[in-house]
C-alpha cells in the first residue's frame, strides 16, 4: 500500500504531533481535524480551531494481527487498539512495548513516535504515532 508523497506529507502535523481540532461552538475535540463539527454542523463552520492532543489515553478495544499487509511483515504479530484519548476522541493505533497477552481493555497508554512504513527500500519513510503502556 504505497502512499504518494504529498498524501502522507500533508498529514504530518496530525501523524507526528496528534494535532486535531476543537469546535469553537461546543468545545468538542476531533482527531484528525475536521472542517465541520459532527455535533454542531453549520454553526461550527469557520470556528474549528487547531488543537493538539495530550497524547494520553485508554484502550477501548484491541486485537492482535497475525495476517498483515507486507508492510507490516516484520512486526507480526502486532497489537492494534482503539484508544480513547483523555480529550474524549478516539483513534486507531498500534500498541508497542507490550505482549499481546498483557493488553487489557481499560489500560492506560501514551503516544510515542515510530516508523509507520516506507515506500520500498528506496522510497520515503513514513513516521507517526504508535502507543505504549503509560510509564513504559
Amino acid at each position: 500500500m504505497t502512499q504518494a508523497i504529498p498524501r502522507f506529507w500533508r498529514e504530518i502535523q496530525s501523524r507526528y504531533n496528534l494535532v486535531g481540532s476543537k469546535c469553537g461552538s461546543c468545545g468538542k475535540v476531533d482527531f484528525p481535524p475536521r472542517a465541520v463539527c459532527p455535533d454542531c454542523g453549520r454553526k461550527s463552520i469557520g470556528k474549528m480551531q487547531s488543537f493538539k492532543l495530550c497524547g494520553k489515553g485508554t484502550v477501548v478495544t484491541y486485537t492482535t494481527i497475525y495476517d498483515a499487509p507486507s508492510q507490516f511483515d516484520m512486526q507480526k504479530p502486532y497489537v492494534m487498539a482503539i484508544v480513547e484519548m483523555d480529550e474524549g476522541v478516539r483513534l486507531t493505533t498500534q500498541l508497542i512495548n507490550v505482549k499481546p497477552e498483557d493488553v487489557k481493555i481499560g489500560m492506560k497508554v501514551q503516544a510515542t513516535f515510530r516508523k509507520l512504513g516506507q515506500d520500498g527500500e528506496a522510497g520515503v519513510i513514513h513516521y507517526g504515532y504508535k502507543f505504549r503502556p503509560a510509564g513504559s
Binding site: 516508523k115 519513510i125 504508535k130
Partner: peptide, 16 residues
C-alpha cells in the same frame, strides 16, 4: 532497535 525504530525515531524520543 525494534523494527519500527531508527535514528530518526530515537532522536525524536530523545528530543521529546
Amino acid at each position: 532497535p525494534g523494527p519500527d525504530e531508527d535514528v530518526i525515531t530515537i532522536s525524536v524520543e530523545a528530543a521529546r
